Amino acid sequence: MMEKTFVMIKPDAVKRRLIGEIIQRFEKRGLQIVAMKMVDVDKELAKKHYAEHKDKPFFKDLIKYITSSPVVVLVLKGKNCISVVRKMVGATDPKEAESGTIRGDFALEIGRNIIHASDSPESAEREIKLFFKNSEIFEYNMPDADIIYE
């Protein structure tokens, strides 16, 4: 099933110059980038994005962290891409993330875990709408799609 997912390359990855490495992994896997930009996340947007954590003790620190530097946001498209991307990203706690995953290879602390990826179709839709206008999401054919997909 073709679907779209939302990915955020977080401040720690931006500051560590890992943007290209992370994006390259998605492209090499065969996923299609249909939207991408660098943004400053203000407090209002951060609170909307992380609304499900508003009552948790780490919420204030999370908002401070995500607004500390620009982030890169992407919309990826592909068959079952939500689950594919989540597997590529690895466990939320990098200590539990397997080697070969983005977090397993680049992160050590849960509060600096490099990347966010939507965990469901509903989350993907909500997060995409928070960060992108419809006019910023592109549809185009990949010339190698018949090599990637059966």
Rank of each mutant, 00 (worst) to 15 (best):
D119F: 10
K87A: 03
I110A: 05
E109T: 09
T101K: 06
Q24S: 15
H49I: 04
T92H: 12
S123Q: 09
T5Y: 06
R126V: 10
K43Q: 14
H49F: 15
R16V: 05
K54Q: 14
A97H: 09
F6V: 04
V89W: 05
P70L: 00
Y140D: 01
R16N: 11
K15C: 10
K87M: 02
L62I: 00
K43D: 13
A35Q: 09
C81T: 09
A145T: 13
K129I: 01
R25D: 02
V89D: 08
S120E: 08
L45C: 02
A107E: 03
L74A: 10
K43A: 15
V85Y: 05
E3D: 13
E122T: 11
L18K: 06
E96S: 11
Q32A: 09
I23F: 07
A124I: 01
I23Q: 00
I23M: 08
D40A: 06
F58L: 03
Q24E: 14
G78T: 06
V85N: 01
Y140I: 05
R16I: 13
E27G: 06
K77R: 15
P70A: 01
E96I: 00
K77Q: 15
R16K: 15
K60N: 15
I19E: 13
G20N: 09
K54L: 02
T101D: 04
K87E: 14
M36N: 14
I115A: 00
D146P: 10
I9S: 01
H116L: 07
E125G: 02
K47L: 01
D146R: 06
S118G: 12
T92Y: 04
K28M: 09
S118H: 06
E136N: 09
A107H: 03
Y50M: 07
S120R: 13
V84Y: 03
S120K: 09
V71D: 00
I9G: 05
A124D: 10
E139M: 00
D40H: 10
V75Y: 11
P121F: 00
P11G: 05
R17M: 11
F131G: 13
I63R: 08
K28V: 06
Y140H: 04
K10W: 03
S69P: 12
A51N: 10
E136Q: 14
M142R: 15
S83C: 07
D144W: 14
M88V: 00
D40L: 08
V39Y: 06
K129M: 12
G104E: 06
M36L: 12
S120W: 04
F106R: 00
V85H: 02
T101C: 11
L76P: 14
D55Y: 07
I137A: 08
L130K: 02
